[in-house]
Design a protein around this nucleic acid. Structure first.
Length: 359
DNA sequence: CCTGCCGGGTA
DNA sequence: TACCCGGCAGG
């Protein structure tokens, strides 16, 4: 486990060696002294079956109030974006806000399209997993100090304004940013906030904002609309017809199309996605150009538009298929190299299916 | 050959 | 359970 990794000239990608062995990332998020805070923009997205289960059991956070519909569809009076935020974002938030207050949504508490990741569609759990409301961290308070804004705003913003889906971490206009640290899964609406979160909580660094060497990038990913990877993960479980280009997605995030809200009400009853193994730092986008392959296994309701046939082979396989087709995505080994094994995801280290760079 | 990772072993 | 690795298969 502990890699006797020599500094290896530290060249790598210009990023310093991580101390993966030194600390247990899992504890970091919860151990953070959380000031009393209402629901924040961030929430822990259960990205894997196991963590989720753990979250449910963990008493730690659950400070979240009762899952009242209104709580899930807060009306952000105003989002105060971190430094680089733009007016656009605010506008988007506002636009969405108006949507979220739509009677339709409010009228269907149990069937909310769930801007609230905590409402596990497949679980229909009445109560919020602790990880959701409780996971507060310093970073969050600056991405959204006053109000819990639904994941929609940023996401929608980027559609409303024709923002490209390319990941621009410096631009807070993107969708959500999910912490990929093991069992953390926090989601922030701003990249900078997420970077700060990672630095503070996981990397244990000071809030040296300008000092970002980019390492944080490896620990969070942007929740985008292209959730191919998710498809991959669920494909094996999806009883539905494989032809359905879009698997019964979990209404996690809203489709960009605001007017399509009503359609969001559908609540697919899905079995808990349990495909990938367990512990994992989960998916990560080590680099900006890491495309679809590196999305977190979070059920995001993406585009209503005909999504390109993603992972056709996988979807086509209704039942057990021996070996996975083998994705074309570069895996940890390739990306980091043998001399940086400590940067690999655990799965890769154990020669298991990579969980960071899903296909 | 390299790579990804299954299956199975060890601690 | 966490971890490791032989060995296979795809490229």
């Amino acid at each position: 486990m502990e890699a006797e990794r020599p500094p290896a000239s530290g060249r790598g990608c210009g990023r310093p060696p991580l101390r993966t062995a030194g600390q247990d990332p899992a504890t970091a998020p919860v151990s953070v002294p959380a000031p009393p805070q209402g629901p924040a923009v961030e929430f822990a997205l259960p990205q894997e079956p196991e963590p989720r289960a753990a979250d449910l059991g963990a008493p730690g956070a659950g400070a979240a109030g009762p899952p009242t519909p209104s709580a899930h569809i807060p009306v952000p009076a105003h989002r105060s974006p971190p430094g680089k935020a733009r007016l656009d974002e605010v506008m988007a938030a506002t636009a969405l806000t108006s949507l979220s207050t739509s009677p339709l949504l409010l009228g269907a508490p149990g069937v909310t399209f769930s801007t609230e990741p905590c409402l596990e569609p497949w679980r229909e759990a009445p109560m919020q997993p602790p990880g959701c409301g409780g996971g507060w961290d310093p970073a969050s308070d600056q991405s959204s100090p006053s109000t819990p804004s639904p994941p929609l705003p940023p996401e929608a913003a980027h559609f409303l304004f024709g923002e490209s889906t390319l990941r621009k971490r410096k631009s807070s206009l993107q969708g959500l940013f999910q912490c990929l640290w093991k069992r953390c899964g926090k989601v922030l609406s701003s990249a900078s906030g997420m970077q700060r979160h990672i630095r503070l909580v996981h990397l244990g660094r000071q809030a040296e904002l300008e000092q970002s060497d980019g390492e944080e990038d490896f620990y969070y990913t942007e929740l985008d609309s292209g959730l191919d990877s998710l498809t991959d993960g669920l494909s094996g479980l999806t009883p539905g017809s494989p032809t359905a280009s879009v698997p019964p997605a979990f209404p996690r995030l809203e489709p960009p199309e605001p007017l399509a809200l009503p359609s969001l009400l559908r609540l697919p009853a899905l079995p808990p996605p349990s495909v990938l193994s367990t512990t994992s730092p989960s998916q990560v986008c080590p680099s900006d150009h890491a495309h679809q392959g590196c999305l977190a296994p979070v059920r995001l309701e993406s585009q209503p538009t005909p999504v390109r046939a993603c992972a056709p082979a996988l979807l086509a396989k209704p039942s057990a298929n021996p070996r996975k087709p083998r994705g074309d995505a570069k895996k940890c080994r390739k990306v980091y190299g043998m001399d940086h094994r400590d940067l690999w995801c655990t799965a890769c280290r154990w020669k298991k299916a990579c969980q960071r760079f899903l296909d």
